[in-house]
Nucleic acid binder design. Structure first.
Lengths: 190, 190
DNA sequence: GTCTATAATCGGATAGAC
DNA sequence: GTCTATCCGATTATAGAC
């Protein structure tokens, strides 16, 4: 019935793949490395996934799905206050990047490696997630919490958040929530 | 005498390599592609560079050198005013990313692909560039132009700027300078 | 400095037995 | 569902002639 294979086994394998993709990058991760991490031989891997591309697509779908779910849950809890919603979105973004870990990072940094068909198939998820952001940003702009062009502001905020992957050390003194709060504080026109 | 080969021929080849590295990514750029772009056969390439790694190091050194030079020139022109200096740094950053193009982008996005020796050898350039930023940010903080932790603020600003590579279209209506100005406006506590 | 030719290795992917 | 064995194209890099 389902076009998409969602068995728990495949989920587990996808999780392991995400880990390697973040560590090494998609291009440098070989099917042999993936298989070893999964405790099987490289030939067996192709019983679960058609090819390497399909693994990437699975990871990225998982990452965007996660990001969407967590973000939606987070802003539900504070539906009225624009400032709380903005902070919640930033926190949710960093939560899926660092707490849940890996899949969302792959979605952000390896999207270009998707073949055109997979990219087209998954773009609605990315669009839905960005729409969530633009909505929250619009509310914040209307409440005069922040200033600027809705499009640019969301790009800048997401850029600042995404780039944390390159420098932030979760084992350091600051929590992801600290980062999110500090970013929001920085741009607020209080 | 010189440890580093700085012939104009090598500079030209480095420029072409940078272009391909941005388009395809370092891992997916083959020496055959590089050679073809340079109008020679792949075997001849190794007369100019010891190996593929050395090409990457050359590109990244060029990119950081460019960024440093342009940034220093830009803030010299406005040595007194903290706001002008901040704006100048942001403009310079986007100028080396989009106007000069390629080499600085490679430095930012492919740094991880450097082998440890090359990375250690080039890190002083990256550190010098970041120090320039922290200095400008410190001045802006002291003048109460912006608020926050000096370390985090510079990371967030650089993240927002770096991520533009992923979405900004230079052939669109906005100039890189527009972007820089809008980012500065967004974070200013006027 | 560039060429041709090729070595040596590694990559994704398949076939067929169990 | 996993294994072994293997195909075969692609990749980095070298050797030696011109």
């Amino acid at each position: 019935m389902n076009v998409i294979n969602t068995s728990v086994r495949r989920k587990e394998l996808t999780r392991l793949a995400a880990q390697l993709f973040v560590q090494e990058g998609f291009d440098r991760t070989t099917v042999r490395m993936l298989a070893q991490e999964m405790g099987i031989k490289s030939g067996s891997l192709f019983h679960h996934f058609k090819d390497k591309q399909e693994i990437l697509a699975a990871v990225i779908e998982e990452g965007m799905q996660n990001a969407l779910t967590i973000a939606r849950q987070s802003i539900e809890h504070c539906s009225s206050d624009p400032e709380a919603r903005l902070r919640a979105m930033a926190r949710a973004h960093l939560e899926t990047l660092f707490t849940d870990r890996n899949a969302h990072v792959v979605a952000l940094f390896e999207w270009r490696r998707l073949d055109p068909v997979a990219s087209a198939h998954l773009s609605h998820l990315r669009d839905a997630y960005e729409a969530l952001w633009v909505q929250v940003i619009d509310d914040a702009l209307e409440a005069q919490l922040i200033r600027g062009d809705r499009f640019l502001v969301s790009r800048f905020i997401l850029g600042a958040l995404n780039w944390t992957v390159r420098w932030y050390d979760p084992s350091g003194p600051r929590t992801p929530d600290d980062l999110a709060d500090e970013l929001v504080a920085m741009i607020m026109a209080h």
